[in-house]
């Protein structure tokens, strides 16, 4: 086996998941101005729902849509029950509300689904592809292809469609958007629903290759948030940042070892945050 090729393959697979999560986070952020720290829970909800239904003998054409539906409903509930009634609260407080929701979800999942990790059979089984000393399972190829397609589609929708423009207008100035006839509540619900669908999709594609348990959500939020932050919360860069994060993590693991992975990723995040905050530090009008 060629470790470099394998790193690129593994990094691309992780990158597809990070891209899906980052696009969902950016989408919700661009309609509500809130970084939803419960976003990764949509991954845990979808993954555990699929695994539990699979365990109960349901076929994939039942558990896949039900799992994605559960993830959509979960984020819609966050928007409708927690954020919408508190829309006048400061953004910082709303972020804390989503963090509380993440921990509450974790507890509920532990009570309902138990503490053991779960998984379910691959949706795309068969002999893996072997290329240049690396191995790519068929499920991995599907993860990369479907993940990239979904993430890019949502990004294009947000950037280039009238509805996408309306969603972004809601974030820029909700009052003005409402005066122009945009239903702000519906726009935010739509954004959270799409974000939930991406979270659920990432779970049904990734979990067969790994496993999922009640505490998987926060780690996914963190990775998605790092990718979104690397993109500067810009929809046009979120997919690229997701794949970039996955690849850089894999290459650090290959050349530096697992012990260096987190320090280097977080160091990069701090560096980019400092770079992006230059305008704020100098009064918002560029460097002095």
């Amino acid at each position: 086996m060629n470790p470099l090729t394998q790193s690129i393959i593994s990094g691309t697979m992780s990158g597809a998941v990070y891209a899906l999560l980052a696009v969902g986070l950016v989408l919700a952020f661009h309609t509500s101005r809130v970084v939803n720290l419960a976003h990764g829970e949509s991954f845990a909800v979808g993954g555990l729902t699929a695994a539990t239904l699979s365990e109960a003998g349901q076929p994939f054409y039942v558990y896949v849509p039900v799992a994605i539906g559960a993830s959509i409903l979960f984020l819609l509930a966050i928007e409708r029950l927690l954020l919408r009634p508190r829309r006048t609260w400061p953004t910082g407080s709303l972020i804390l509300v989503t963090l509380a929701a993440a921990f509450l979800t974790r507890g509920v999942l532990q009570l309902i689904m138990g503490v053991d990790p779960l998984s379910f059979p691959r949706l795309f089984a068969g002999a893996p592809f072997r290329l240049a000393g690396g191995v790519l399972p068929q499920q991995g190829l599907a993860l990369i292809a479907i993940g990239a397609l979904a993430a890019v589609s949502v990004t294009l929708f947000l950037l280039f469609t009238p509805l996408g423009h309306r969603l972004r207008a809601v974030a820029e100035n909700p009052d003005a958007a409402e005066l122009l006839g945009v239903n702000v509540d519906r726009a935010r619900a739509l954004a959270f629903g799409i974000a939930g669908a991406l979270g659920g999709l990432s779970a049904v594609l990734l979990v067969p290759l790994v496993s999922v348990d009640y505490q998987a959500g926060l780690g996914m939020t963190l990775r998605g948030f790092i990718a979104a932050a690397l993109a500067g919360m810009a929809p046009s860069l979120a997919v690229l940042a997701g794949f970039g994060l996955g690849l850089s993590e894999a290459l650090v693991t290959n050349y530096g070892g697992a012990l260096l992975q987190d320090p280097i990723v977080f160091l990069a995040l701090i560096g980019i945050a400092v770079w992006q905050s230059r305008n704020i530090a100098f009064g918002g009008t560029g460097r002095a």
Binding site: Q6, S7, V135, L209, S211, A250, T253, G257, A258
Partner: peptide, 16 residues
């Protein structure tokens, strides 16, 4: 090879 406790993929380590 070492693997982080939170890692969900060990294929790079195994390839090494």
């Amino acid at each position: 090879a070492r693997i982080d406790l939170k890692a969900n993929d060990a294929s790079i380590q195994l390839a090494n």
